[in-house]
Design a protein around this nucleic acid. Structure first.
Lengths: 205, 205
DNA sequence: ATCTAGTGATACATACTGTATCTTTACTGT
DNA sequence: ACAGTAAAGATACAGTATGTATCACTAGAT
């Protein structure tokens, strides 16, 4: 007696619940949204929620899975060569974010722990900006300093998370030097490509 | 009639609650820990929790703030020059993670939305690994391919989050090209430093 | 030794969760 | 168009978590 997802009533209901949930999360944050809230916002009986989802978590996953699958489908076309050629899966990500801004905001929306990570990232980015200023140079191509700094800070924190998650496969000291080196010198230098130097992006085409 | 934090009983209580909370989060995940659970684990009356914290969220913040302050204090010593010289705030981060592994696991521990980000990061890292293989070269200095890939993927996603958070200050297209370029060429190239090339880190000292 | 402030025990109102039962409404296939 | 079926609505209820109030107890400061 499972529910038939092709039934138009079911599609309406599920879509209604998903959209209501997204609106509420953006308005008041994930934790403080109750299932009654979702049902009320979607103008449905509370019990209808339970006919489709076990809990809030499952509804959230459902919302974001669709988003994820959509993005993945679009990046499948890319050949590895595309990466160096300028147009890349990253481009697809940004386009997709433009289209699905609300859902991406939910995806990235913070819970308690996230704000501390945010502050940490901000702090590391600040250190990076100091380092840039200390060189006494202007970034080439008018690259915004903030952007360079957050790029580096995100890489450092992300790699640190990966390291813990993987059960610390390398020594901490090696990771730290490695992580910094990669931010300083970049992907191409890491694989020994020196003959190809991609052009610096500029704001005005 | 606020509580005096210098009272040894208060310090004991708060520390007990914090430690109990961390244990429970690592065991069963943030969402499924109730305040009663925390009190039981800390061997205290439930009402004692409310005398110190408004809710779970506040306790979590308290736990992580201490961690954050500790880390920040240690990175304050660094001059900007240190960054290029090899020893950096990143090194301090990894050392701190070694010491406070449990708390960092809580900090990075995932909620629903996080696992989708995780999958996204994994996917982008996969694309990056394809790109590395497509060059037909071996990473210099025996750098692990996975590490290079996750470094890049984290930077891309982190910068995308920053972009949304800042209210999309630059065009999506520019961000995408910029973000990719930074990963490819790195921080030093971005600020036009070509005369200094930091040595590639190696595993064995 | 005494006063004070923090903790424990108990109780209670409220809100949320998850399920059960029955009725009403909307879709499907013929 | 209509009968059969499956989903949604209405109502109710048990179980649990939250947040607060009151009073008794006990550890710490002087």
């Amino acid at each position: 007696m499972t529910i038939n997802r092709d039934d138009p009533r079911v599609r309406r209901t599920r879509r209604g619940l998903q959209e209501a949930f997204v609106r509420l999360i953006l308005k008041q944050g994930y934790d403080s949204v109750s299932i009654q809230d979702i049902a009320t916002e979607a103008e449905m009986a509370r019990i209808t929620f339970y006919r489709h989802y076990r809990d809030k978590e499952e509804l959230l996953t459902d919302c974001l899975n669709t988003l994820y699958e959509e993005l993945i489908a679009r990046t499948e076309h890319f050949s590895p060569q595309g990466l160096a050629a300028g147009y890349s899966p990253v481009q697809v990500l940004y386009e997709h974010m433009q289209e699905q801004e609300a859902l991406y905001r939910v995806l990235f929306s913070s819970r308690g722990t996230q704000t501390v990570i945010e502050r940490l990232r901000h702090h590391i980015a600040g250190k990076a900006m100091e380092a840039i200023r200390a060189t006494g140079r202007q970034p080439i191509g008018g690259l915004p300093v903030e952007l360079i700094a957050y790029h580096a800070a995100s890489a450092q924190i992300g790699l640190a998370m990966w390291w813990l998650d993987q059960g610390k496969p390398y020594p901490a000291d090696y990771m730290a030097r490695m992580s910094l080196w990669l931010s300083l010198r970049g992907f191409l230098a890491a694989v020994g490509v020196t003959e190809y130097q991609p052009p610096v992006p500029t704001l005005e085409i």
